[in-house]
Amino acid sequence: MYKVLIIDDDKSTRYLLKRFKKWEAHGFIIKDEAADGKEALRKLKAFPFDLIITDIEMPGLNGIEFLQELKSMKKQACVIFLSTHSNFEYAKQGIRLGVFDYMVKPFDDHSLGETLARVKAYLDKEYLQRTKKLYYFRESERKLAACLLSGSDPDHGLLESIFVETAEMLENNLYKTGILLNTMLANLREKIYAANPWLEKIEDDMLAYDLTQAQSISELKQKFQVCLNALLEIIKKYELHQPGSIIRRTCAYVVNHVEQDITLKMIAVEVHFSKDYIGKLFKRKTGYNFNEYVTKIKMEHAKHLIRSGAFKNYEVSEKLGYSKPDYFSRLFKKYTGYTPAEFKKIL
């Protein structure tokens, strides 16, 4: 049901509109009413309406002034003016400002029904257009995810279409465009995590971004591209685009066996390559020495165990395969800057 706001200082007019019996049959429901334009603007800030039926001559803020305020607020709503023959010139001015239609007082049920039928046809068409645009936007997101997961640089044409689709949906509102693109990046990140569940334990802060801070569309595009490059770099770093890659299998094995005493020899048995080859390849691809990587994963898991509050420090040390709690504490402080006890206090 499309939601309706009625604005008129005349109670009898508001009553006549509310007593119309076929609102729902036409696809509408009256959600609220206001006695003047200022009251209506307050209600519009709190709740969105699809259709606004407003008188033209009202105290404080007339219909034309209300419409101007509505446009400055960038509120999307279909507006119908109620007018008398004496203020027909106002009605024509309103149409120039974007009013959908006007009705002359006094009106009858038949003329109101005809007007609502035209409004519904218009709103239905607008809804379908928005839905279609959203579909194409989601389809572009799917293509972008497939591109990243294959380890390929995003196609320039695809990126441009994303910006065009986003701008059209949000009427070039830069802040809202930033919000929508933030959401797309978050969805892309979740798709990568879904395909590689172990990755979240390593790259839990895969993206640090806020595109709503961009001051121009060119800056927004630049930041979006930087974020995509960061995602692609991670995919290539761990060879996520290669399902059977040694790096991917090694990383997954370490994360999934974090509470064991992991060695290169164990990995060699798992992936069927020599430990020397794996060690050199791992360093070259990820930038980590294998033992450094194992320590990183163990320290991240230690943070998780400490946050849970279920284990004492020596129990965390034992679970991670460190026989000496003091040695574990030194490793943890080197990695986090805090001893386990200090880390627990800052949670």
Rank of each mutant, 00 (worst) to 15 (best):
K3S: 07
K3Y: 01
V4Y: 03
V4R: 02
D9I: 01
K11M: 10
R14T: 01
R14H: 01
R14S: 01
L17N: 05
K21V: 06
K22Q: 14
K22S: 14
W23T: 02
W23Y: 03
W23D: 01
E24L: 04
H26A: 09
H26T: 01
G27S: 08
G27R: 09
I29Q: 10
I29C: 07
I29N: 08
I30C: 02
D32W: 05
G37L: 04
K38Q: 13
A40P: 06
A40K: 02
L41K: 00
K43R: 13
L44Q: 12
L44G: 15
K45C: 09
A46H: 09
P48D: 14
I53C: 01
I53M: 12
T54R: 10
D55K: 02
I56A: 05
L61H: 03
N62C: 05
N62T: 06
Q68D: 14
Q68N: 12
E69S: 14
M73I: 11
K74M: 10
Q76I: 09
C78T: 13
H85S: 15
F88R: 15
E89F: 13
E89Y: 11
G98D: 08
Y102T: 07
M103F: 07
M103A: 06
V104Y: 02
F107Y: 05
H110G: 02
S111M: 13
G113M: 07
G113T: 08
T115N: 03
R118C: 10
K120L: 04
D124P: 03
K132M: 15
Y135A: 11
R138P: 00
R138A: 08
R138Q: 14
E141I: 09
E141S: 10
A145P: 04
A146Y: 07
A146N: 14
C147V: 06
G151C: 04
S152L: 12
P154I: 06
L158K: 02
E160Q: 12
I162C: 07
V164I: 15
V164H: 10
T166D: 03
T166H: 03
A167K: 12
A167Y: 06
M169H: 07
K176S: 15
T177A: 15
G178F: 07
I179K: 11
L180N: 07
L181N: 04
T183D: 13
L188Q: 03
A195V: 03
N196E: 04
L199N: 05
I202F: 10
I202H: 08
L207W: 03
A208C: 10
Y209Q: 10
Q213E: 14
Q213I: 10
S218F: 09
K223T: 09
F224I: 07
Q225K: 15
N229W: 08
A230D: 13
A230N: 15
L231W: 00
L232R: 08
K237Q: 10
Y238S: 09
E239C: 08
Q242M: 12
Q242F: 03
I246F: 12
R248D: 00
Y253C: 05
Y253F: 15
Y253I: 05
Q260K: 13
K265W: 08
M266T: 03
I267Y: 00
I267N: 02
V271S: 00
S274R: 00
G279N: 15
L281V: 07
K283S: 14
G287E: 14
Y288T: 04
E292L: 09
M299I: 06
A302Q: 10
A310Q: 14
N313W: 03
G321H: 03
D326C: 02
L331I: 09
K334M: 13
T336D: 11
T336M: 11
T339G: 08
T339Y: 14
P340Q: 11
K344V: 12
